[in-house]
Amino acid sequence: MRKLNIYIVVGLLALGNVFTSCEAVKNTNNTQRGAGIGAVSGAVIGGILGNNLGKGGNGAMGAVLGGVIGGVAGGVIGNKMDKQAREIETALPGAQVERVGEGIKLVLGENAVRFDTNKSTLTATAKTNLDKLVPVFNQYPNTNIQIYGYTDSTGTPEYNLKLSDQRAASVKTYLSSKGLAAARFVTTGLGIADPIATNETPEGRSQNRRVEFAITANEKMVQDAQKEAGK
């Protein structure tokens, strides 16, 4: 796979702190990692990873971290998310896929989902790339998908906020038109917030014009995982 980052947090309540260990992660399976995540609260995980990663805390990253279940059930969910993340990478190599906790952060830059200037209408290229994700999303129906739209800093913040919201909504509308349940999606426009590159160059602004997905377990997946963990 071209890029697949996995972030693991292991809690140690007896010492009252949280640590990460490359060697420890190497020697654990996904269920054990999920159990480790369960030792600390989602709020603590979100704060630590948000500070360390330095981006996306109010968008997809924050949403994924807020959905942590933990324990053995969290490990079961993690296994399923591992597989889905790999399938997304295969289906759309240009996507940035990050496995975080028990969810997936998916970033689609202008090379994947492109909009014309000042437009919220999906281009033909954007539709083609979204089509590649539909079979994967269909294969994992028990996930919630939050879509976040972003812009560069060109124009007023108020205008960009509205435009980003319209772009996120366009992605939802298109995916729903392909048979995915609309109830799975929540859209949010974040405008110029959380830039991932400088807005001082054309290249940087291009990177900031993006759509992010937060893919998390829905209630049924959580219940199924808890049943499986209890066996």
Rank of each mutant, 00 (worst) to 15 (best):
Pro93Ala: 09
Leu106Trp: 13
Tyr140Leu: 06
Lys83Leu: 13
Val134Asn: 06
Gly109Met: 06
Glu102Trp: 14
Glu98Thr: 06
Arg86Gly: 03
Ile88Asn: 04
Pro93Ser: 01
Leu133Gln: 09
Glu89Leu: 15
Gln96Ala: 10
Gly101Cys: 05
Val134Thr: 11
Lys127His: 10
Glu87Met: 14
Val97Met: 13
Gln84Cys: 14
Thr128Cys: 07
Leu92Val: 03
Thr123Trp: 01
Val134Lys: 08
Ile104Tyr: 06
Ala124Met: 09
Gly109Arg: 11
Glu98Ser: 11
Asn111Tyr: 03
Leu133Glu: 14
Leu133Gly: 05
Thr123Ile: 07
Pro141Gly: 01
Leu106Asn: 06
Glu89Asn: 14
Gln96Ser: 13
Phe137Trp: 09
Thr90Leu: 08
Ile147Ser: 06
Thr128Asp: 15
Glu89Val: 12
Leu122Thr: 05
Gly94Cys: 02
Pro135Glu: 11
Asn144Ala: 08
Pro141Arg: 01
Arg114Ile: 09
Lys105Arg: 15
Ile147Val: 14
Glu89Thr: 09
Glu110Asn: 03
Thr90Tyr: 05
Asn118Met: 14
Val134Gly: 06
Asn142Phe: 10
Phe137Cys: 02
Leu92Pro: 01
Ile145Pro: 03
Tyr140Gly: 05
Val100Gly: 04
Ser120Leu: 07
Lys119Leu: 12
Val113Asp: 01
Ala126Gly: 13
Ile145Met: 09
Ala124Trp: 05
Ser120Val: 06
Ala124Cys: 14
Thr128Met: 04
Lys83Thr: 15
Asp116Glu: 10
Val107Tyr: 00
Val100Lys: 11
Leu122Ile: 04
Leu133Val: 02
Phe137Asn: 03
Leu92Ser: 10
Glu98Gln: 05
Asp116Cys: 03
Leu108Ile: 02
Thr117Cys: 12
Ala91Ile: 02
Lys105Tyr: 08
Ala124Pro: 12
Tyr140Pro: 13
Ala91Arg: 08
Gly101Ala: 15
Val136Ile: 12
Asp131Pro: 04
Phe137Leu: 09
Gln146Val: 00
Ile104Glu: 02
Thr117Val: 11
Val113Ser: 03
Thr123Ala: 00
Asp116Phe: 02
Leu133Met: 15
Val97Pro: 01
Val107Trp: 00
Asn129Trp: 00
Tyr140Ile: 02
Leu106Tyr: 14
Ala112Leu: 11
Thr125Glu: 06
Val100His: 10
Asn142Pro: 12
Asn129Ser: 04
Leu122Phe: 09
Glu110Gln: 08
Thr123Cys: 03
Ala95Asn: 02
Val113Tyr: 04
Leu108His: 08
Val134Ile: 13
Asn129Ala: 02
Val134Phe: 12
Ser120Ala: 15
Ile145Leu: 12
Ala95Ile: 00
Ala124Ile: 11
Phe115Arg: 13
Lys132Trp: 01
Leu92Tyr: 11
Asp131Ala: 13
Glu87Gln: 15
Asn144Gly: 05
Lys105Ser: 09
Asn142Leu: 05
Leu130Thr: 00
Lys105Met: 10
Tyr140Val: 05
Asn138Leu: 10
Asn118Ile: 06
Asp116Thr: 07
Lys132Leu: 08
Asp131Ile: 08
Gln139Leu: 04
Val134Leu: 14
Ala112Thr: 15
Asn111Gly: 14
Ala126Leu: 07
Gly109Ile: 06
